[in-house]
Design a protein around this nucleic acid. Sequence first.
DNA 1: CTGGATAGTCCACTCTAGTGGAATATCTGG
DNA 2: CCAGATATTCCACTAGAGTGGACTATCCAG
Lengths: 148, 148
Amino acid sequence: MARDYGWELSTAVVLFHEAVARRLGLNAAEHKALGVILRGGPMPIGALAPELGVGATALTGIVDRLEKAGYVLRQPDPADRRRTLLVADPTKTPDLGGIFADLGRAMGEFQSRYDEQEMAVITDYLDNTIRVLRAQVAKLTQTDPGRA
Amino acid sequence: MARDYGWELSTAVVLFHEAVARRLGLNAAEHKALGVILRGGPMPIGALAPELGVGATALTGIVDRLEKAGYVLRQPDPADRRRTLLVADPTKTPDLGGIFADLGRAMGEFQSRYDEQEMAVITDYLDNTIRVLRAQVAKLTQTDPGRA
DNA sequence: CTGGATAGTCCACTCTAGTGGAATATCTGG
DNA sequence: CCAGATATTCCACTAGAGTGGACTATCCAG
């Protein structure tokens, strides 16, 4: 068998995620939560529950730790005073902005060598790969025998 | 900002890993261990410690669970009777072979549409991406402030 | 053959992160 | 205004997974 790019990429991605989390001092749940907040913008705490697959009561602790570490801030929602909005803390964001800027720079370095047509092939490939992976996740989750 | 393929792919990969592990009834450490064994072939138990980043004493439990679930077998090492070799259990492997066969089939479905030159571009891209990710992991791990 | 190193295991302990239930504050439909 | 629903938090508890230390069996250098 030649090089298994799928396996290698997959492993590299997972290790990268773990390395980032470790670097930030976050566990898997916290890291995932932070990612959701960074991508999704300010959102009520409860919105994290389905994303993380944990109960609502666990969120208090997760958010506590994220806040204590300085990555997010709790802000009362003016529109609904029961809610607490989570916003990424801009004063701490550079820390992890730096990580991804570094990654982006390194990626851009070789990406710039592809012409437009080549990039089209690559994005097509990535698009399809993402689609397939998501479909597999859906399938695996669907037929999940549960956590016995 | 257009679609962020890097983020989407990365997320999809991580979710896929998690879904597989959940499907197999394994936690992160066990899943990783199984991956190492499947890729690396029979190996003494102790060889897993550096891979997983856990102490030697934790391995007994991890291997116990993997063995109980039927994914690996303990076999005495004839060359060194202190050692116990871990081998993937071929009778159970189909379970997860099925998962990856399914993935491989789905990937092959669209991959077959690329011609040789296009595949060369794609593998070049993947190769570079893997290289960059590994470099970033090394960098992050190096400057790791430790788990305070 | 012997003394020290190595592989694996067992044990008691600890730490983390989750759960369910209850409390509080707030919103919303009638 | 009131009754029920919703968002978050607090609390006591539990389950899991790792640690360090000690033990056994085995290997190997001298």
